[in-house]
Amino acid sequence: MRAIVGSGLLDVTDLPDPVPAPGEVIVDVAAAGVNRADILQAAGKYPPPPGASDVLGLEVSGTVSAIGDGVSGWSIGDEVCALLAGGGYAERVAVPAPQLMPVPRGVDVASAAALPEVACTVMSNVVLTAHLGPGELFLVHGGSSGIGTHAVQLAHALGARVAVTARNQAKLDTCRELGADIGIDYTAERFDDVIAAEGGADVILDIIGAKYLQQNVRALNTGGRLVIIGMQGGIKAELNIAALMSKRAAVIGTTLRARPVTGPGSKAMIVAETVARTWPLIESGHVRPIIDSVFDLADASAAHARLDSGDAVGKVLLTVS
């Protein structure tokens, strides 16, 4: 099969077809999502977890073509999408069965590749960890990103007030069309001033990390929850513990890729909750995949450049033909 292995040049190479181990299925890939983790891995800065494939790609959509021992509930020919620890930039991939999801009704199989990472990330962090509720103010940094565009829609569907940061008016306009109530151009104004004037954020989803820590804490409401899922702005910052304590607030850091397949806090649990809670919102039209651009697998370098440019609105996908 054709695949792209990181790190190094994003050249297509030939690898043996995967064979399903017990508890796994083989998916013939229609499309794969491109994520910042793939860019980092290709640059040699983010190795896959122990035991994971060296092939890039953390999410795919496609068709089940083989089923390993001990797997039930899936049949050959099923259209699926899947959360991966690696292996998605390929014609075929072996997937632990608990990480499979059906393609939601109303979504074509290729577009479904835009869903697993964003849907599972937002569900695990915003709903299962931060417990965002109706009427609360939710701030998502990078509102026009793949995660951001999904988070805006889900939070709006849950009845929250939604604020976003983005770097220009066009991106903010897109976020408003998806359900954002407050748009903040971070190149022209301080988001913590805007959010503080609104009474403070109950939940903040942050992809920046160190650079935004002090402003995020200032922006929190009493009892607020800051969930950090990225480190684009660095890994070390000074935390004003007194300010955090005075607000009875929480700072939480999480990851998704290295979680175990099954057990407490596992990918299986997150996938199941995502299908149960988010898929009905997709099928009813309240949430939809937002796709910026689509490239062929052989053009992975161009796809990475598009995502790394910061110009993308929504997800960048690779199709496998």
Score class of each variant (00 low, 15 high):
2 R>K: 15
5 V>C: 04
6 G>P: 14
6 G>Y: 12
6 G>D: 00
6 G>C: 13
7 S>A: 14
14 D>A: 15
14 D>F: 01
14 D>V: 14
18 P>G: 07
22 P>N: 10
22 P>W: 05
24 E>M: 05
27 V>G: 05
29 V>Y: 02
30 A>E: 13
33 G>Y: 09
34 V>D: 08
42 A>P: 01
42 A>I: 01
46 Y>P: 08
48 P>S: 07
54 D>L: 12
57 G>S: 06
62 G>P: 11
63 T>H: 09
67 I>Q: 09
69 D>V: 15
78 D>I: 09
79 E>A: 15
81 C>P: 05
83 L>F: 12
84 L>I: 07
85 A>M: 13
86 G>Y: 09
91 E>M: 01
91 E>N: 13
91 E>Y: 02
91 E>L: 01
97 A>L: 06
98 P>T: 08
99 Q>M: 15
99 Q>W: 13
99 Q>T: 14
101 M>A: 14
112 A>E: 06
118 V>W: 03
120 C>I: 14
122 V>H: 02
125 N>E: 04
126 V>E: 07
131 H>L: 09
132 L>M: 14
133 G>R: 13
135 G>P: 04
144 S>P: 07
154 L>Q: 02
155 A>D: 06
160 A>I: 03
173 D>R: 10
174 T>N: 07
174 T>K: 14
178 L>C: 10
179 G>I: 05
181 D>W: 01
183 G>C: 09
186 Y>D: 06
188 A>P: 00
193 D>I: 04
197 A>H: 11
201 A>T: 02
202 D>Y: 01
205 L>C: 04
207 I>E: 04
207 I>D: 11
208 I>Q: 06
215 Q>C: 02
216 N>R: 08
218 R>M: 05
219 A>V: 08
221 N>R: 13
228 I>Y: 03
229 I>W: 02
230 G>A: 07
231 M>K: 02
233 G>Q: 11
237 A>G: 04
238 E>P: 00
240 N>M: 01
241 I>Y: 03
245 M>S: 13
247 K>D: 06
251 V>T: 10
257 R>V: 05
257 R>I: 03
258 A>R: 09
263 G>H: 08
264 P>M: 12
268 A>Q: 10
273 E>R: 15
276 A>M: 01
280 P>C: 08
281 L>T: 10
284 S>A: 15
285 G>T: 09
286 H>S: 14
296 D>R: 15
302 A>C: 00
302 A>P: 00
304 H>S: 02
305 A>T: 08
307 L>K: 04
308 D>H: 13
310 G>T: 09
311 D>P: 00
313 V>R: 13
314 G>R: 11
317 L>F: 07
317 L>N: 05
319 T>H: 08
321 S>A: 14
